[in-house]
Design a protein around this nucleic acid. Structure first.
Lengths: 141, 141
DNA sequence: CCTGCATCCTGTAGCCACTACAGAAGCAAG
DNA sequence: CTTGCTTCTGTAGTGGCTACAGGATGCAGG
């Protein structure tokens, strides 16, 4: 009589939570195992039963991961994101540190791209007595 | 009588090879274990004795790693770098594929930097009723 | 009620490229 | 001969998942 899977269902299976949040089922269980997300109640048969609060937390985790935050960072962010916190100084500190990290990686990668692109451009790809790519790799630092 | 460690020594201990190439001792043994570099002969006591050819190979590996090539890529590069190869087409193919990879990562990271920088910039860091960083993380995708 | 099938469970092992030990042995200088 | 540095092998840990194996559950159709 009721809809097969109510779009406004208040409880979700792990599969439903997975498709709602775009987080792999195995990954959700992994997050629970490492205590990143709270363990949900279970049915008599041992199946996880999720509520809306789990959707919110997991979505938060997912977006944080997409922005490159580490699991430990996310742990800290989740702790600070709890209601009752007055200041977001901690959040800013974590985000700034991560941003620094990202910028360093970005610069490294840009240099890399430059070297690689320059090297590959000099390579004809046909039979060459000396291969520019191999020359670069063989060159003394 | 002879110099303690001849600067032009024809043989090296693993420690000397390490400082010559800048590759960690443990990493050198790891490379040998996974058959990336050839196993050197050993003394009666079981210690590795390296020659100049090992310096060359390991330096090649190190520069390749610095350029971000995977171990498997390097394996292929080493095979192609062997003397007797006429064409460097394989080298170019590997390097081009890697360059594509680097460019993708670069673009991803740049977008990331943009989002993070924009978000952090809006954060005062002081007590805020709504933290812009947390807002972004909580926002629906 | 039974069958079939999708989903779910736990637990373990694998991925990459190292890094970090533990515990033993070698080796050169003093 | 002792001291202390280096080296040896083997194993386990890192991060962030992913991929099974082998079994249980739950639901729909017949």
């Amino acid at each position: 009589m009721a809809a097969i899977t109510n779009a406004r269902a208040t409880t979700l299976t792990i599969g439903a939570l997975s498709s709602r949040t775009g987080v792999n089922v195995e990954t959700i269980r992994y997050y629970e195992r490492i205590c990143l997300i709270p363990a949900p109640p279970k049915t008599g048969g041992g199946r996880r039963v999720y509520g809306p609060e789990h959707i919110q937390i997991l979505a938060f985790v997912r977006r944080s991961r997409e922005l490159g935050f580490s699991i430990d960072d996310i742990r800290a962010l989740l702790a600070v994101a709890e209601p009752g916190h007055v200041s977001c100084a901690d959040v800013k500190r974590i985000a700034m540190a991560h941003l620094e990290d990202v910028r360093t990686k970005l610069a490294d990668l840009a240099r890399l791209e430059h070297v690689l692109a320059g090297t590959v451009a000099r390579c004809s790809g046909e039979k060459a007595p000396a291969c520019p790519v191999l020359d670069v790799l063989n060159a003394s630092a």
